[in-house]
């Protein structure tokens, strides 16, 4: 590791306890900053749907009403944004990817990789093994309330063990892929996988 130059006069605020929950290069925030590349899409629940797709073929599709009727799961997790803020103990409710696969009648995922497609054209890629066994959900509620549009409402992916750009807002479709492909930010210099504990912020990290 290279020697970092000392920044004269910099002392810093020392991190509080629970530092073992804050990955390298991150700091805690009490706020919930908003980051998006474009306008917040207007949510129309009447025409909303969430679909599972394998290549070009549709495996399953749920309307908002059908989606809300699926078994719901609540989680409390820490989230880590690549812009260096982390937030502890956030509460979410939604439908786990395991539940979606089960409801679609999938005994096992047909492929090893997935692309999440969103309103507004945003995409992000996640290996399927990072989505199953309770590791991810399509979240519809945050802190007991319906997810606000600027935070990805009505529904976003929540995959909290990866940097938060992977928890794509306004999620509408999960498409299985035979091989990993970069999504939106992953094509623009950000890391293909994005593990905050290995500080995989940018391509090549």
């Amino acid at each position: 590791m290279q020697d970092s130059p000392i920044s004269r006069g910099f002392r810093g605020r020392r991190p509080p306890a629970r530092n073992d929950r804050v990955p390298p290069g991150q700091h805690l925030t009490e706020d919930f900053p908003v980051l998006s590349a474009g306008p917040t899409p207007a949510a129309k629940l009447g025409s909303w749907s969430f679909a599972l797709q394998d290549g070009g073929s549709l495996l399953a599709k749920w309307s908002w009403q059908e989606f809300e009727a699926l078994p719901q799961t609540e989680v409390t997790v820490d989230i880590h944004c690549v812009t260096t803020w982390s937030k502890l103990d956030t509460h979410w409710r939604g439908v786990t990817i395991d539940t979606l696969f089960e409801a679609a009648g999938l005994d096992e995922p047909p492929e090893a990789f997935a692309m999440i497609h969103c309103d507004g054209g945003y995409t992000t890629n996640v290996p399927v093994e990072d989505l199953i066994d309770g590791k991810a959900m399509i979240a519809t509620h945050y802190e007991g309330k319906p997810l606000a549009p600027e935070h990805g409402g009505p529904a976003r992916l929540l995959v909290p063990h990866l940097y938060f750009w992977k928890s794509a807002k306004w999620a509408r479709r999960l498409r299985f892929l035979e091989a990993d492909e970069p999504g939106f930010w992953e094509s623009l210099g950000y890391h293909i996988y994005g593990d905050p504990w290995r500080e995989q912020r940018y391509a090549g990290d």
Partner: peptide, 30 residues
């Protein structure tokens, strides 16, 4: 949020609108 939403309502193509946001402690100007 206000500007982007208003421009879409005024007929601007959402794909031509690029945004960068920051909250009190977040993001690009954190």
């Amino acid at each position: 949020e206000e500007a982007a939403k208003s421009l879409v309502a005024l007929g601007h193509d959402a794909s031509l609108i690029k945004t960068e946001r920051f909250g009190p402690t977040g993001a690009t100007h954190g």
